[in-house]
Simulated scan of single mutants.
Amino acid sequence: MGFKVGQKVVYPNHGIGIIEQIEQKQIGSTVLPFYTLRLASTNSVVLVPVDNAREVGLRSPISAAEGEMLLKNLADDFASPPTDWKDRFKEFSEKMRTGDIFAVAEVLKTLTYLSQFKPLSFREQRMLERARYLVISELSTVCRKPECDIVQRVDEALAAACAKHARRTTRARAAGANAGH
């Protein structure tokens, strides 16, 4: 899996970047090739060892077809999260670190839903904002549309997912209440 100069890539938890160059760096007595990656979100530069790119989670953006699948998944119901915020934060942090945009979308859906009922902790609020940015920026890139066009589609999908989850939760509570009589 080699990337080329000028290619767009996704750096886990930071989003879209562009490979600006592939350069040799001396580390101790060894000379190793590195990708020089400019992150779109911060305009900062990250060096990723070519040999470790896969372990780091550097990947190509999803395809346009996968982008449509991601929007569809965003509108689907989701599993109820752990109620303890520490367990939830740990689980969500692991999903964010994978770099898998579908896992990031699960975090986005769940935190969006939870934020409708109670204020999120500062850390969860930051994670929600980061997940939202990662999903919107990657969709914007793969759909070749401005982020403002993607935001509306993401918001509609999230609203659908939250409504489905709320209906399922209400039905489950009603079934539980009826079983108790």
Results as ranks from 00 to 15, higher is better:
Trp85Tyr: 07
Trp85Ser: 00
Lys86Cys: 06
Lys86Arg: 15
Asp87Gln: 12
Glu91Asp: 10
Phe92Gln: 14
Phe92Ser: 02
Phe92Asp: 12
Ser93Pro: 12
Ser93Asn: 14
Lys95Glu: 15
Met96His: 13
Met96Cys: 10
Arg97Glu: 13
Thr98Phe: 02
Thr98His: 08
Thr98Arg: 04
Thr98Leu: 02
Thr98Asn: 07
Gly99Thr: 06
Gly99Met: 09
Asp100Ser: 11
Ile101Asn: 08
Ile101Tyr: 08
Phe102Thr: 05
Phe102Met: 05
Phe102Trp: 10
Glu106Ala: 09
Val107Asn: 12
Leu108Ile: 07
Thr110Pro: 06
Leu111Met: 13
Thr112Phe: 03
Leu114Ala: 11
Leu114Pro: 04
Leu114Ser: 08
Ser115Asn: 13
Gln116Ala: 07
Gln116Val: 02
Lys118Asn: 09
Pro119Ile: 13
Leu120His: 00
Leu120Glu: 14
Ser121Gln: 10
Phe122Val: 08
Arg123Trp: 03
Glu124Arg: 07
Gln125Cys: 01
Gln125His: 01
Gln125Ile: 07
Arg126Phe: 12
Arg126Trp: 08
Met127Lys: 02
Met127Ala: 02
Glu129Thr: 11
Glu129Tyr: 02
Arg130Ala: 10
Tyr133Ser: 01
Leu134Thr: 05
Leu134Gln: 00
Ile136Pro: 01
Ile136Leu: 08
Ile136Asp: 02
Leu139Arg: 01
Ser140Met: 10
Ser140Gly: 15
Val142Trp: 01
Val142Arg: 11
Val142Asn: 03
Val142Tyr: 11
Cys143Gln: 14
Arg144Asn: 08
Lys145Met: 04
Pro146Ile: 00
Glu147Val: 01
Glu147His: 00
Glu147Trp: 06
Cys148Asn: 02
Asp149Ser: 00
Gln152Ile: 02
